[in-house]
């Protein structure tokens, strides 16, 4: 699969840009956190496209962002379940 570039993204409508980024991010996230992949991808897609492109080129920064998302998600789930009980 050819790498996603800023010019490829710029040629697409905004909503499609996120979908294109998501399609690239999802398999990488799925490899780390299969059960949370959809949710984590959705969270990361709220980040600026330019930053997401950098992350796709830098596995290290992507991994740290994924771990951050997992931590945020877990903290959120703990809060939610404590509210319910």
């Amino acid at each position: 699969q050819e790498p996603l570039t800023a010019s490829m993204l710029a040629a697409a409508p905004p909503q499609e840009q996120k979908q294109m980024l998501g399609e690239r991010l999802y398999p990488l996230i799925h490899a780390m956190h299969a059960s949370l992949a959809g949710k984590i991808t959705g969270m990361l897609l709220e980040i600026d496209n330019s930053e997401l492109l950098l992350m796709l080129e830098s596995p290290e920064s992507l991994h740290s962002k994924i771990e951050e998302a997992v931590a945020v998600l877990q903290a959120h789930q703990v809060t939610e379940s404590s509210l319910k009980s």
Partner: peptide, 23 residues
């Protein structure tokens, strides 16, 4: 530091599945 990530973000649905899963 506080994360800017939003736990209530909408879930992403890939257009094509990664693995062939028979449901």
């Amino acid at each position: 530091k506080k994360s800017t990530l939003n736990p209530n973000a909408k879930e992403f649905n890939p257009s094509k599945p990664l693995l062939s899963v028979n449901k």
